[in-house]
Amino acid sequence: MKKRKQWLMLVCIALAVCLVSGGMLYIRQKNNNKKWSLIYIPKTEDGTNDFWTSLISGTRMAAQECGAELEVLAPEREQDVEVQNKLLEEAIEKNPDAILFSPSSFDASDELLQKAKDKGIKITFIDSYTESNIQDMTVATDNLEAGKQLGEYARTFLNKDSQIAIVSHVKGVSTAIEREQGFREGLGDYNKNVVDVVYCNSQFDKASQLTEELMEKYPNLEMIAGMNEYSSVGAARAVQKHDMEDQIQVVGVDSSQEAVQLMEKGVFKGIVVQKAFKMGYLGVTETVRMLQGKPYDENVNSGCQLVTPENMYSSEIEKLIFPFNTIK
């Protein structure tokens, strides 16, 4: 009788294990086959900006490959925090499985993002992040490292008396803070030679205007460093307009076809290029992995590369500065 009870107990345990295993397998298969709903809110969808165009293309290709539904909601201007937050509210009302977000402000969206989390919506930051650690995942360039690469390269054109100015994009946003910090670290003891920092609010024309004001204010200026595509290209346009490329060295972050042309003409001395398409692609694929319950990395570095007139036409660099919508 005792042996029979033990046998029955073993059979029950085995059945329970089978039921649990079968249930977990069913859930896993169901998650793998589910058509996940994603909403991506970048800082802008601007056809004149190669970085955002390439990044958004990456998200769309990844969504197609993963069988996910992706909606892109974007402000017209990168610095329009109010519109971005309205789009975030709209996204929360739609209750997707995940919201992918590129915050234009370091703290203005935290309350809304918490509201999304409270509804069970997963949050992935792409390109930048906010003050509170609210996200489930971040996919971005290591902006400190990007700035440091730029600063170390820029230093090779300078001496102890050189005057340097920084044209940045949006004051207070994480990418601007970290790139400037990294750039100063890369400059080393030449950091003390930075005479001014200005912000163009991610507008080409504003960056050009500010650069012209800097050239007038500091007639001995020897270098201008732009911290994103708008600020870098805008600064380079102003330097070229005034035929100052022999006196003022221009370096920057982010590439575009115009930036490549300006480098060919000797205006840009170096650009740190982000892998924008890869960033967008990984933002979606890693979010889907997270939703499926698979292992994922909470912090994904999408990488960057220093491009100079000497290496710009090597095969690997050409893939980066002439994007063909492929993972690099």
Rank of each mutant, 00 (worst) to 15 (best):
A259T: 04
R28A: 12
Y40H: 07
K122E: 04
T326Y: 07
S109K: 10
V197A: 11
V267G: 04
Q305T: 11
A207I: 06
K148P: 06
N133Q: 10
M1T: 11
N311V: 00
I13Q: 07
A116K: 13
G283N: 04
Q135W: 01
S174L: 04
N311M: 00
N325M: 08
P75K: 08
G293V: 05
G188S: 09
Y153I: 03
I164C: 14
N220V: 01
E45F: 14
A236T: 04
P219W: 03
Q64P: 11
W52Y: 14
I321N: 00
A140M: 03
K94I: 00
N159G: 13
Q249P: 09
A62N: 02
L38Y: 05
E264V: 04
Y40Q: 03
S315D: 00
I224R: 06
L150T: 00
E264S: 08
K328I: 15
E65S: 15
I92R: 14
P295F: 00
F101P: 15
K294D: 12
Q135N: 05
T156M: 08
F268N: 03
K278P: 01
T326G: 15
M263C: 04
A235H: 03
D161F: 11
R60W: 02
Q64V: 05
E152L: 13
L158P: 04
I41N: 10
S132F: 06
V20S: 11
M24T: 15
G252W: 03
S128Y: 02
D142W: 03
V239N: 01
F324C: 14
A116Y: 07
K217C: 10
T141L: 11
P103Q: 01
R289M: 06
E316V: 07
N325A: 08
A207K: 10
K30W: 05
N325W: 02
L320C: 11
R77H: 03
V233I: 05
I121F: 00
A238C: 05
S231A: 09
K3L: 12
G270N: 02
D118R: 06
E298C: 10
C200V: 00
A68H: 14
A238P: 04
S315C: 14
E89H: 06
T59W: 12
Q79E: 04
L221S: 12
G280A: 02
V83E: 05
